[in-house]
């Protein structure tokens, strides 16, 4: 018997809609909580073994190096430590590092917001290629990143003639260091903002527009507050990388003491001169920065979850 029942019984029962929408509601809820029960766990001995191996590995490869930075820095006591930091070349390196990081953060925040707006709020062909290109600097070796600027602006570079004619110095000077840092930190802010803004969609912006808000109003009153934590997160990571960048900056800096040496380069010079305490003292500042970054990042992650909901 052919039952054409389903095709023909076109009754739309209201209860069916109610059930369907309720089903959707529960589905949209939080992920099911992890239930570590006897079914889904290993015998105690295995558990202890796995935890022990994990902790030993992390201790040996990650915790110890960090601790040793501070240990080596304070090996000769407070006085030697402070003396290494207030030395003029060290101060110059700190100043230069802060300047370069400041410029990179401002540039990347601007670029990140602009790029995320274009990518997340509009549809256009070639979008995924654009996202890939923005991420590209992540996969380029820092040394290659530095080298390409030498090839552009160095004494043998493509623009060498123009730069000489106008007496502009980029390589072995501040502009080169800034450019190399911009290259390696390029994706940091944008890649935090793009997925979040894509996920948030355009409904709130449309609502704001329907209520009469102008483009800038929409951006500053609706979009920006919605991504502020992700933006801060991106700034933190961008800043940490900008202050700590070594390979790319090393290629373009020229290592001129007191002039074009950033903190990481200063650390290298001191280390190669066997001034270990001084080297680690400057390194400890960057390690501290890394720790502060990590703590702030951990605190921010809770906020980020809120933003994404």
């Amino acid at each position: 018997m052919t039952l054409a029942a389903d095709a023909l019984r076109t009754t739309t029962h209201p209860a069916a809609h109610a059930l369907a929408s309720e089903g959707l509601n529960t589905h949209a809820g939080a992920l099911p909580a992890r239930r570590p029960g006897p079914t889904n766990s290993e015998p105690k001995a295995v558990r202890i073994a796995i935890i022990t191996v994990a902790l030993l590995f992390l201790g040996l490869f990650i915790a110890l190096p960090l601790i040793s930075v501070f240990y080596e820095a304070f090996k000769r006591g407070w006085l030697a430590y402070v003396a290494a930091l207030v030395e003029p070349d060290a101060l110059a390196a700190i100043r230069l590092t802060l300047l370069v990081a400041g410029i990179s953060v401002v540039a990347n925040v601007t670029f990140g917001l602009v790029a995320a707006w274009a990518i997340a709020k509009f549809e256009f062909p070639g979008k995924s290629l654009l996202i890939t290109l923005i991420d590209l600097p992540f996969s380029v070796s820092p040394v290659v990143a530095g080298l390409v600027y030498v090839l552009l602006f160095g004494s043998q570079g493509l623009f060498a003639a123009y730069l000489q004619a106008w007496d502009i110095k980029i390589i072995f000077a501040l502009p080169g260091i800034v450019l190399a840092t911009l290259f390696v930190t390029f994706p940091f802010v944008a890649r935090e903002l793009i997925p979040l803004m894509q996920e948030q969609g355009t409904a709130e912006e449309e609502a704001a527009a329907s209520l009469g808000a102008s483009g800038l109003s929409i951006f500053f009153r609706v979009t920006l507050p919605n991504v502020k934590w992700a933006l801060l997160y991106g700034v933190l990571l961008c800043n940490a990388r900008a202050m700590g960048e070594f390979g790319a900056v090393s290629v373009v800096s020229g290592h001129i003491r007191g002039l074009t040496n950033t903190m990481p380069l200063h650390i290298e010079i001191l280390y190669n001169e066997y001034q270990f305490v001084a080297s680690f003292a400057v390194a400890s500042l960057l390690a501290l920065l890394a720790l502060v970054t990590l703590i702030a990042k951990t605190l921010l992650e809770a906020r980020l979850v809120e933003d994404a909901q």
Binding site: L58, I62, L289, T293
Partner: peptide, 12 residues
Amino acid sequence: IIDIPFALPTAV
């Protein structure tokens, strides 16, 4: 601390 290698400058 898993993220330390991300945050710690490579020279350090």
